[in-house]
Design a protein around this nucleic acid. Structure first.
Lengths: 137, 137
DNA sequence: CTGTATCCACGGCGATACTG
DNA sequence: CAGTATCGCCGTGGATACAG
């Protein structure tokens, strides 16, 4: 089993950052991190087109391991972003789908993806220039 | 469409996810991860109010170590999200500020933060319920 | 098919000490 | 003040094997 990242170093971030809504700083940070999690984002966006089965998800996301899929699904389910429906059949069939909440998150994430797409070239260019300038130094 | 070539590469994640604009998958993933990086988000949002010096940043973000601040500033600067201005004085004075690009990212990120703020309670509730149900099982 | 458990390598990150 | 360098812990996540 893997320890939940929410149990990280209690001492450090006890005080919420003053820039965000302070009351919920802790949870909000966790949510932001979830949204920044590669696998979580990929799973959610894979479910955009409709419900999918475990194996379908596994194969629709290149590089995703069973371990991480299971872990990610667990997290997302815990947050109420997706639902799990198991049919008592043989062989077993389990279907995952976005909840309404999950859908709204997807929309928010899409904003970011759009931003990334829009500024992709600019950033790529910045990096190249930065690295070049650094190499001279 | 069945894609089942030998997917055994580790870490690399060579194949972009089909759900996003494929051409830029690599970079976009990195950008998303940057946006999900705790320190990067905090630094950027700390600069929202205007330029700040190294030490100011260090003190305005609880839990942030010198190492991580330096590292994060380096990253953000490389992407062209912030600028660094050093004044040749004694003692040295260095000021960091958001670029226009950085400002647009902040706006995109703010969307996410707002989402997090809006659904904070709902998620908290979901988690509690999920953990409770699990404990019974 | 749908997971769960174990092993382990790699990297993130905090702590600390030192330089210009 | 504004970094850089080094060390060490431990979380992350891939590979693999096993179970329901």
């Amino acid at each position: 089993m893997e320890s939940d990242p929410s149990i990280r170093q209690a001492g450090a971030l006890s005080g919420p950052c003053s820039r965000w809504p302070a009351e919920h700083g802790e949870t909000i940070r966790q949510i932001i991190e979830r949204a920044g999690n590669k696998w979580a984002v990929l799973v959610v966006s894979s479910l955009q087109g409709g419900p999918l089965r475990y194996t379908d998800l596994l194969h629709s996301i290149p590089g995703l391991s069973q371990r991480m899929l299971t872990h990610t699904l667990h997290q997302l389910r815990r947050d109420g972003l997706i639902t799990r429906t198991a049919y008592p059949e043989v062989p077993p069939r389990v279907v995952y789908a976005l909840t309404d909440l999950g859908t709204t998150l997807l929309i928010a994430i899409t904003t970011l993806i759009d931003w990334a797409g829009t500024h992709h070239d600019e950033i790529q260019d910045n990096r190249t220039r930065f690295d070049t300038a650094e190499a001279i130094t």
